[in-house]
Amino acid sequence: MTDLFWLTDTQMARLAPFLPKSHSKPCVDDRHVLSGIIFINSNGLRWHDAPAGYGPHKALYNRWKRWSDKGIFARMMTGLAAEDGEKATVMIDATYLKAQRTATCMGVKKGAWAPNRANQRRVNTKLYAIRDNQGRPVDLFMTAGQVRGYIGARALLEGLPKVG
């Protein structure tokens, strides 16, 4: 249980004003729930695979769903960002694309020869983007799908605009 992620007392104190007031005694402590939600999301696990140290997986999912629907996580992020007085936001985002080797079959007329699509090779591609606080792309970089993510991020670091 030592390899589990736990929020510190300082972190919980910063998050406490954004947490909803409990109308009854909660079955699972907020620290356990928030730590479990962060652990699940950062490791890409299913709710069912949550370590038992965080409490029942059903409790983690139910609290995550209820707080998401009420906008509590959005208020947390907005409130934490406002405390630091951030003037601008810059994000690095990456996504996988399926790219076809050739697109020449797009203009084939009915009855004409068309290549066998089953034999056509598809290539994974990663597209990295620096986006501003409106979500608009500022800079783009593309790599092959099997290239590690830090290579694309490193290529974009020099183009990051100054914020603050």
Rank of each mutant, 00 (worst) to 15 (best):
D9V: 03
T10S: 12
T10E: 13
M12F: 08
A13V: 06
R14M: 04
L15V: 05
L15Y: 05
P17Y: 12
K21T: 13
H23S: 03
H23P: 02
H23K: 09
S24Q: 09
S24N: 07
C27E: 15
C27R: 15
D29M: 06
D30V: 14
R31Q: 14
R31H: 13
V33H: 09
L34T: 13
L34E: 12
I37Y: 07
I37V: 15
I37L: 14
F39V: 11
F39C: 06
F39E: 15
I40L: 15
I40M: 15
L45G: 12
R46D: 11
P51R: 14
P51W: 06
P51T: 12
A52V: 13
Y54R: 14
P56N: 11
H57Y: 10
A59V: 10
A59D: 11
R63I: 00
W64Y: 14
R66Q: 06
W67Q: 00
D69G: 07
D69K: 10
G71V: 03
G71N: 08
G71K: 01
I72L: 08
F73G: 01
R75E: 09
R75Y: 03
M76T: 04
M77R: 05
M77I: 01
G79H: 04
L80F: 07
L80S: 07
A81R: 10
A82P: 02
A82T: 13
E83Y: 03
E83C: 05
G85H: 06
K87S: 14
K87F: 00
V90G: 00
D93I: 03
D93M: 09
A94K: 01
Y96E: 11
L97F: 05
L97P: 02
K98E: 09
A99G: 00
R101P: 01
R101Y: 05
T104I: 12
C105K: 02
C105S: 11
M106S: 05
G107W: 02
G107I: 01
G111L: 08
A112M: 14
P115C: 13
P115Y: 10
P115M: 12
A118S: 05
N119S: 08
Q120K: 09
R121E: 12
V123G: 01
